[in-house]
Amino acid sequence: KPRVVLAPEEKEALKRAYQQKPYPSPKTIEDLATQLNLKTSTVINWFHNYRSRIRR
């Protein structure tokens, strides 16, 4: 699969959402995906990867 490249404003929106709730509910994930015009799997993976990046 080709890698999804996020626009800077999409990254900022995801980071703001992460600061509010690092483990978002499925509803929140769905809303974010719709709002940013991304797949839910992309949003889920971003949160998973961002949490692991923060832990390093």
Rank of each mutant, 00 (worst) to 15 (best):
K1R: 00
P2N: 15
P2Q: 14
P2W: 01
P2K: 13
P2D: 15
P2G: 13
P2T: 15
P2L: 13
P2R: 11
R3I: 03
R3V: 10
R3S: 06
R3M: 07
R3H: 06
V4Q: 07
V4W: 01
V4R: 05
V4S: 11
V5T: 10
V5A: 12
V5C: 02
L6R: 03
L6A: 06
L6G: 07
L6N: 06
L6T: 09
L6W: 02
L6D: 02
L6Y: 02
L6I: 04
A7W: 00
A7N: 13
A7L: 04
A7G: 13
A7P: 09
A7H: 14
A7K: 15
P8A: 10
P8F: 08
P8N: 10
P8K: 13
P8Q: 09
P8S: 06
E9V: 03
E9T: 12
E9Q: 14
E9Y: 01
E9F: 02
E10F: 05
E10C: 01
E10N: 14
E10A: 14
E10P: 02
E10Y: 01
K11E: 15
K11H: 09
K11T: 11
K11F: 07
K11G: 04
K11M: 12
K11S: 12
K11R: 10
K11A: 12
K11V: 15
K11P: 03
E12K: 05
E12R: 03
E12Q: 12
E12G: 06
E12F: 02
E12I: 00
E12M: 09
A13E: 12
A13W: 04
A13I: 15
L14N: 09
L14T: 03
L14F: 01
K15P: 03
K15C: 09
K15I: 15
K15N: 05
K15Q: 02
K15A: 03
K15R: 08
R16K: 14
R16Y: 05
R16I: 13
R16N: 09
A17H: 06
A17P: 08
A17C: 08
A17T: 03
Y18G: 08
Y18Q: 07
Y18D: 11
Y18S: 08
Y18I: 05
Y18V: 10
Y18P: 06
Y18W: 10
Q19W: 11
Q19M: 15
Q19A: 15
Q19C: 06
Q19L: 09
Q19N: 05
Q19G: 11
Q19F: 12
Q19R: 07
Q20M: 15
Q20Y: 08
Q20W: 11
Q20A: 10
Q20E: 15
K21L: 09
K21A: 12
K21F: 05
K21P: 00
K21R: 09
P22E: 09
P22H: 02
P22G: 04
P22M: 12
P22F: 02
Y23P: 12
Y23I: 07
Y23R: 10
Y23K: 10
Y23V: 11
Y23C: 13
P24I: 00
P24T: 06
P24S: 05
P24V: 03
S25M: 15
S25D: 15
S25P: 05
S25W: 14
S25Y: 05
S25F: 04
S25V: 09
S25R: 09
P26N: 11
P26F: 10
P26C: 15
P26T: 14
P26K: 14
K27R: 07
K27E: 08
K27D: 05
K27M: 07
K27V: 03
K27C: 00
K27L: 00
K27H: 02
T28A: 12
T28D: 15
T28K: 11
T28M: 14
T28V: 12
T28C: 10
T28Q: 09
T28L: 10
T28W: 15
T28E: 15
T28H: 08
I29M: 13
I29P: 00
I29E: 00
I29C: 14
I29K: 03
I29N: 00
I29L: 09
I29T: 08
E30L: 10
E30T: 13
E30C: 06
E30W: 14
E30I: 11
E30P: 06
E30K: 13
E30N: 00
D31W: 08
D31R: 12
D31Q: 11
D31Y: 14
D31V: 02
L32G: 03
L32K: 04
L32W: 08
L32C: 01
L32N: 04
L32F: 02
L32Y: 00
L32Q: 02
A33H: 08
A33I: 12
A33P: 03
A33W: 14
A33F: 08
A33R: 13
A33V: 13
A33C: 03
A33G: 06
T34C: 09
T34Q: 06
T34I: 04
T34N: 02
T34E: 10
T34P: 00
T34S: 12
Q35V: 06
Q35D: 01
Q35I: 15
Q35A: 12
Q35C: 06
Q35H: 04
Q35W: 11
Q35T: 03
Q35E: 04
L36K: 01
L36H: 02
L36G: 01
L36E: 01
L36S: 01
L36P: 05
N37P: 01
N37Y: 10
N37Q: 13
N37I: 00
N37C: 07
N37S: 11
L38H: 09
L38K: 11
L38S: 08
L38W: 06
L38M: 15
K39M: 14
K39V: 08
K39T: 11
K39C: 07
K39W: 13
T40P: 10
T40L: 12
T40S: 09
T40R: 08
T40M: 15
T40H: 04
T40G: 06
T40C: 12
T40Y: 08
S41C: 06
S41H: 09
S41L: 02
S41K: 15
T42N: 10
T42V: 11
T42C: 10
T42I: 01
T42W: 06
T42E: 09
T42L: 09
V43C: 01
V43R: 01
V43S: 00
V43L: 04
I44C: 14
I44H: 01
I44M: 11
I44T: 07
I44V: 11
I44R: 04
I44Y: 03
N45D: 09
N45P: 00
N45I: 03
N45T: 05
W46Q: 00
W46K: 00
W46T: 01
W46E: 00
W46Y: 04
W46N: 00
W46L: 01
W46V: 00
F47D: 02
F47V: 02
F47S: 01
F47I: 03
H48C: 03
H48I: 10
H48D: 15
H48V: 09
H48W: 02
H48R: 13
N49P: 00
N49F: 03
N49A: 06
N49V: 02
N49C: 02
N49R: 08
N49K: 10
N49M: 07
Y50R: 04
Y50I: 11
Y50V: 13
Y50C: 09
Y50P: 00
Y50A: 12
Y50M: 14
R51T: 12
R51V: 11
R51N: 04
R51G: 07
R51C: 10
R51Q: 05
R51K: 13
S52I: 07
S52N: 12
S52D: 04
S52P: 02
S52H: 12
S52A: 11
S52Y: 03
S52K: 14
R53H: 07
R53Y: 09
R53K: 03
R53T: 07
R53W: 11
I54L: 08
I54F: 15
R55Y: 05
R55P: 06
R55Q: 09
R55E: 13
R55D: 06
R55I: 13
R56K: 13
R56T: 14
R56C: 15
R56G: 10
R56A: 12
R56V: 01
R56M: 13
